[in-house]
Computed example of a mutant assay.
Amino acid sequence: MCKGVNINWNNLGFGYIKTDFRYISYWKDGKWDEGNLITDNMITISEASTALHYGQQCFEGLKAYRTKNGGIQLFRPYENAKRMNRSANRLLMPEIPKEKFVDAVRQVVRANEGYVPPYGTGGTLYIRPLLIGVGDNIGVGPASEYLFCVFCLPVGPYFKGGMVPVNFIVAEYDRAAPCGTGAAKVGGNYAASLYPYHLAKKGGFADCVYLDPQTHTKIEEVGSANFFGITKKNEFVTPKSPSILPSITKYSLLYLAQEYLNLRATQRDVLIDNLDEFKEAGACGTAAVITPIGGIHYKGKLHIFHSDTAVGPVTTELYNTLCGIQFGDIQAPDGWIIEI
């Protein structure tokens, strides 16, 4: 279905590129319609839509990968479907049946197949499902109508020329409130992070480290990604908190660390005053897969982990293992890969 695509695959960044098709479906009178592919990338909604006034919206992010034999595969899309429904429940929006979600993703990838970067370029097709409250609603309350959309765009590798460690600074601001929406993938969480991110960049750092909102003693997230550390006892550790977004990449790394790398893997409190327990650290998420952390600036001091110029060996092995699975070069655990 795709038109001819003329893209310099070796010069792709992480910016919006209009592709040919996107999927759209409406929820009205208590049910979803069948949904269909459209070519228009403009969405028209009422000025009184709850998504615009009261933040009733959530979204997801996943990727399609070109394999060595030219095939295309998705990485754990049912986990994205489950997470979107958890976010929807938190904001009183209707769930999207998991099969409908995955079918919509598959339709969009098939229709835009020519935009999936070739194997070996490091590029992927980034897929953005979103769910928003629409209709004529001016009172504070859930909408009576909803729109589910899935679009995609080709993106290049996050690190051109290979992974490099970056430094972060501990934020004075909170990413989420106790018992708030920190565990849901909703736009309000990201809006709240824009100013702390601006301050971090202004100070010469890649982004912020957010501490727990109640005690400000425990690491929760790193920018818009999840934190992990490799202890000096070869333990893979990620923070545990009800305010953390449950990253699909993080849970994948927890499994791979234990089953593929034979490390002990655990979720527990990570005290900001105990950074010395880690020999390596990183941030993980869909966009970069893993961002190695060179150092964390806290209380006027930059704490360096493995190195601020070189990536640690365990972090490198985790990255290569996960990417190998995503691009089809390493055998995946059962159920992780869906072929297009």
Results as ranks from 00 to 15, higher is better:
170 V>K: 09
61 G>R: 11
233 K>G: 13
55 G>P: 14
205 F>M: 06
148 F>S: 04
226 N>D: 05
212 D>Q: 03
317 E>G: 04
128 R>W: 08
45 I>F: 09
28 K>T: 06
198 H>Y: 10
54 Y>C: 03
335 G>H: 11
331 Q>A: 07
203 G>A: 08
106 R>P: 00
96 I>N: 01
154 P>V: 07
57 Q>C: 13
70 G>T: 09
239 P>E: 01
114 G>A: 00
73 Q>V: 13
305 F>D: 14
139 G>E: 03
315 T>W: 01
254 L>H: 06
181 T>C: 06
83 R>Q: 06
92 L>F: 15
129 P>V: 05
166 V>D: 15
308 D>H: 07
268 R>P: 09
142 P>R: 01
323 C>L: 04
226 N>G: 04
228 F>L: 04
111 A>T: 06
224 S>R: 05
44 T>W: 07
191 A>K: 08
242 P>D: 03
128 R>T: 02
138 I>W: 10
169 I>T: 12
9 W>M: 02
68 K>Q: 15
324 G>C: 03
312 G>H: 05
27 W>L: 09
15 G>S: 09
263 L>P: 05
268 R>T: 13
323 C>A: 01
4 G>C: 07
255 Y>T: 15
203 G>F: 09
59 F>T: 14
324 G>E: 05
54 Y>L: 06
307 S>N: 09
318 L>M: 08
338 I>W: 12
159 F>N: 08
176 A>W: 15
288 A>T: 12
158 Y>F: 15
165 P>G: 04
57 Q>S: 12
57 Q>V: 08
37 L>S: 07
60 E>Q: 11
187 G>W: 08
199 L>I: 13
197 Y>E: 00
37 L>F: 07
273 D>E: 12
84 M>S: 11
232 K>R: 10
21 F>H: 15
137 N>W: 12
61 G>D: 04
129 P>I: 03
198 H>N: 01
77 P>S: 07
174 D>V: 06
231 T>F: 00
90 R>Q: 12
210 Y>R: 05
67 T>H: 10
258 Q>D: 06
292 P>Q: 01
35 G>L: 14
53 H>C: 09
106 R>F: 01
303 H>A: 03
270 V>W: 02
71 G>V: 12
78 Y>A: 04
170 V>D: 11
290 I>T: 12
48 A>P: 10
152 C>N: 11
204 G>I: 11
